[in-house]
Nucleic acid binder design. Structure first.
Lengths: 344, 344
DNA sequence: ATGAAAGCGCTAACAC
DNA sequence: GTGTTAGCGCTTTCAT
């Protein structure tokens, strides 16, 4: 419920109007509304009452112009409804709001040349106090020097610019854990279905898979390339099904894993009896597909919150040391899509 | 790539700086940058060059303060990574950007009392030119009178306020189509697993189901209630499996349908041989689960674009008639989770 | 086709 | 504790 704010003339009330009604100066209104100290309780109450009565709302454009800060954070995100990016966005929004920042969002479409640069440019024009780049893909070396702090979510720091922080680089470890799970089950080696190579997130996972195999001196099969979609998983699955030696597959996300399982099943190869499959993300349906999917859980919310904490710190205490990121916990969720290899 | 904007003093260049460099007045710079007419090509070029050289960027706070418009649209969205809401957000962002508007996003957590009202309030404070409320849930009658146009996505207009438009109310028809598909297959009736009753989207679908049954004079079984999650679908599925008369189920979204299928399968009831299941949304994995899911596709992108078109129109031509929404097309995707009922 | 002057509604710096 | 005075960087209105 919002009172209509009935100032004569139909325009929105300004802080002078509140001041007049409360019988104080305009600056005092500003003080109260910004929670500054040195205001008597009596005055504070009168101001608040007057503001309420008028239906007064701060004008953030004026505030931004005068203070040089917008109290807003810009987010550059891929325009996909994928579970990971969507979850990160939610986490970021919530953490930003808790910290008192509004969110401005710009999507970059995959394949859009200059996408990230253009997006950042537009956020800068909007005057954001900080920028979050979520799940970046690379499109050539992005070197934009930006005068606000930047948080890169899900990738190592590669952006130029002095004030950059990063979190969520733990995916490599998660991927390694997934691969080791399969190896521990007795599989001789593990095939890998990767995401698009331009995504850092995809390369991270491939790296984790590779290092697990290398550490145990296992043969490293050629990597299959998908595009995160179940459809691409299905395609890859058909290839995999044709190769009788395949007993274990690590897919870089759950959607692709589901596609792989479908293709395997159609080809008459049972999961997990003949072939084990593990996914990545733990999307909400993962526990309910057939067979329930063994996967690795990404703590999206924790990653987003932690990242935003660092970003806000960088915004508000520009001189403080860049605090190190606390890497989030690893969690492997074992369900029914993995088992020991068939004995023959 | 962004030039550092080397004005002496380290502050960002302003339009006067550009004017000075180009040898014109500050107002002329403003004219060029806003694409106004009556600027000679020569002057335009000089201004643009000077701006480029300085790395000049418009200050949107100043512009907003002076013009009274922010060229931004606020979005109120539920804080979920569900496919539907996420897809809508992407469509809205893209359409807004194409129309020259920036996006400000606020999430409301489910169950947060006063969520929508608070979110709208905060957007108003940010000075948005229009507001999009995506997939609203009701939390008591929300009657906030707002002085900017509001677009409600996925719900009939119920917000107070004079300038409200709506789109995406076609879900009822889609749900009806899904139910009729089952009836056409020969099922005596169709059981329904609904979403949370507080969501308009859930009620719409239930309504469509109900009307299909009523139109054919069929018995209407009690509605089961889920929360959109596969887990809740699984719960409901167990109940359904215990009832030998159930041969057809319409779940209000794909995630729940997947949960239902899982429970049915575990209970030894085959899908689609014993029981048919249809979902709603056509999430990307729907074609690859076992069995591939028959579902109904929501044209999220079209709904979002159409809605935004109406909203922008309402913003820019306040006096024009509220153009009617073009309802998007119905699309039933028949896959393998539905079949005629078992003969006995 | 271009320019000069006057604010938009707030916060910053300083005075009292 | 509270008030005064200047801007913040643009767009608007009106001249020219």
């Amino acid at each position: 419920m919002t009172s209509a704010g009935g100032r004569p003339g139909g325009t929105a009330p300004r802080s002078v109007d509140v001041a007049r009604l409360a019988g104080v100066s305009q600056k005092t209104v500003s003080r109260v509304l910004n929670g500054e100290r040195y205001v008597s309780d009596d005055v504070r109450r009168r101001v608040l009452d007057a503001a309420g009565e008028l239906g007064y709302r701060l004008n953030s454009a004026a505030r931004a112009l005068a203070s040089g800060r917008t109290r807003s954070i810009g987010v550059v995100t891929l325009g996909t409804a994928l579970y990971g990016p969507a979850s990160l966005l939610i986490g970021v929004e919530r953490a930003a709001r808790d910290a008192g920042y509004a969110l401005r969002v710009v999507n970059t479409l995959e394949g859009d040349p200059g996408g990230v640069v253009g997006a950042v440019e537009s956020l800068l024009e909007q005057g954001v106090d900080g920028i979050v780049v979520s799940e970046p893909i690379d499109e050539g070396a992005v070197s934009l020097s930006v005068d606000v702090p930047v948080l890169v979510l899900g990738a190592p720091v590669t952006f130029g610019g002095t004030r950059t922080v990063a979190t969520g680089v733990g995916a490599e470890l998660l991927a390694r854990t997934a691969t080791e799970h399969l190896l521990d089950l007795g599989h001789a080696t593990v095939h890998h279905l990767a995401g698009p190579e331009r995504w850092f997130a995809a390369r991270d996972r491939t790296e984790g898979w590779r290092s697990a195999l290398t550490a145990r001196g296992r043969e490293r099969p050629a990597v299959l390339a998908g595009d995160w979609s179940a459809a691409s998983g299905y395609e890859a699955g058909r290839t995999l099904a044709a190769d009788g030696d395949v007993t274990a597959v690590f897919a870089a996300n759950d959607d692709m894993a589901i596609g792989v399982i479908r293709a395997l099943t159609e080809a008459g190869r049972r999961v997990p009896d003949d072939v084990s499959v593990v996914g990545f993300d733990d999307i909400p349906v993962a526990a309910y597909v057939t067979p329930p999917l063994t996967t690795v859980r990404q703590p999206f919310d924790a990653v987003a919150r932690e990242g935003l904490r660092l970003l806000v710190r960088a915004i508000e205490k520009p001189d403080a040391e860049p605090a190190p990121a606390n890497d989030p916990p690893v969690e492997l969720v074992v369900r029914a899509s993995t088992a020991p290899p068939p004995t023959r």
